[in-house]
Design a protein around this nucleic acid. Structure first.
Lengths: 197, 197
DNA sequence: TTATTTATGATAGTATTACTATTATTATTA
DNA sequence: TAATAATAATAGTAATACTATCATAAATAA
């Protein structure tokens, strides 16, 4: 695969659209690199600023805080994954094969793209596995949810759920199953990567 | 059920055994209350100290940091749960019924105990659902794991896995399945509690 | 072209956090 | 009674997570 796609994430996540400027794109790119390298807890806006030879104040002009920045990255990922699901399901007629293709996508790393300006897919995969629960396992989740910032994840779940239902209309919990597939995939990938025994 | 049990967790988790003194027990009890009330991110040793009318320095004498304190609480929970599994499986002969009893335990709140000095089971359940992944989804997980501080969780998984294997010796991934049952249960309970749509 | 808006850089400052260290006091045990 | 240990009281530090101000450079509009 070789094409350039960009995804518009909910504008409430950022203060200023990072896709609207070179420095904005650099903030996101370097944030991804740093979260991969140091882990989310050890990333600060100051470190990101130093990496792009800019200042903390500039990073704060794009994102309210670290949590929103992670949310932005994850939303980008979920949008991208939903796009890939649509793409891969083209011309797959059997519902069973569709489900198989989806599980295949979810349980493997995203294909690396050749675009120079694209985010590092390996790092993104890693971040989704190890950091994604941190955006919702917080006391403020209900409040944060009001801005619909989890919509891309929900949309993906809904899409998978609809295919589960199409495959077996009798199955009662397609939405639970779709989020279970996604979360279990992350969890098992985490165990394999970091926690061998 | 009405009895008092206490669990010894790996001594590498604490600097000084919190069960060895009244103030130690108060630290853990108040930490549980505060994590439930404020969420792990908003709890500080200073806040715990104020709640027990003591000082930060005293809390630091028991636990190296907040992460270890959470680990202590979760280990206590996993030990308790494994004890309950053993307890509930007494006299259940069929492997199928044993598995059912385990799923039942994992997917429901722990029974509240009447002991005055016991930790609040409702709060504990809540903390396990929302905070437990934070002890291992950190960059330092491999390093932390060297102290065997995740052993109670692993032991529980191993126990469930052995019952899965006993029920169906042909099943290839009993360990994956047992951690999947536990994690999925938390995840789905979280969605029900905090994230209704 | 000039004026105006906007983005960024440079710098400063603040409250809070996550600790470490020191000394005095109190309680326990030898 | 002396020695030991635990805690309280207090101070201090580096880092974090911001907010604020002002100057300058770049883009755009009149």
């Amino acid at each position: 695969m070789d094409f350039q796609v960009s995804f518009k994430v909910n504008h409430k996540i950022y203060l200023r659209d990072p896709e609207s400027s070179e420095i904005g794109k650099q903030i996101v790119k370097n944030a991804i690199d740093l979260i991969y390298e140091l882990g989310f807890e050890h990333v600060t806006f100051k470190k990101i600023a130093i990496h792009i030879s800019s200042t903390e104040a500039t990073v704060y002009r794009y994102f309210e805080n670290k949590h929103r920045l992670l949310l932005y990255i994850l939303n980008w990922y979920w949008c991208y994954l939903e796009f890939l699901v649509d793409y891969k399901l083209q011309n797959v007629l059997s519902k069973r094969d569709q489900l198989k293709a989806i599980v295949d996508l979810i349980t493997h790393e995203l294909p690396e793209s050749t675009g120079q300006f694209d985010y590092n897919k390996k790092f993104l995969n890693h971040i989704v596995i190890t950091e994604s629960s941190k955006v919702y396992l917080v006391k403020e989740v209900a409040e944060i949810n009001k801005d619909e910032v989890f919509k891309p994840y929900k949309d993906l779940c809904a899409k998978i759920a609809s295919i589960i239902s199409a495959y077996n209309p009798q199955y009662k919990y397609p939405r639970s199953l779709s989020s279970t597939i996604i979360e279990t995939s992350h969890n098992q990938q985490f165990l394999v990567l970091f926690y061998p025994n």
